[in-house]
Amino acid sequence: MEGVPLSAYLALGAVLFAIGGLGVILKRNPIIIFMCIELMLNAANLTFLAFSRYHDAPLRGTIPMEHTYMNGQMAVVFVMAVAAAEVAVGLGIIMAIFRMRETVDIDEMSGMRG
């Protein structure tokens, strides 16, 4: 998309990140809180990719240009892998809590005095 400036992608990422953060604060269902965390991760991914796609000069220093072009994509690849692991473990924890307490209300989970 030649006509779209970098600011548009960054603004979309900021708005999505804020909506995700709002959901994390507001919701009481831990599954939806997880979804909002995924939303925030995706907003950060979008920002990574936009910065990486739009920067047309290598970072200062002696790094060759062909190595800095790919850094944003690499960050997103690893964020995706970590998000997959996080979701698997997190949903396992939610299932274990539900089996133990028969509720998933996040406000009732005060066993750790958090």
Binding site: S7, Y54, D56
Partner: peptide, 21 residues
């Protein structure tokens, strides 16, 4: 973040408003 990227003379700010390279 967006203000300095888009509206200052920082490196890359001219391409930030100009569209995709």
């Amino acid at each position: 973040v967006l203000g300095p990227v888009a509206f200052s003379g920082a490196p890359g700010s001219e391409s930030a408003l100009a569209g995709i390279p």
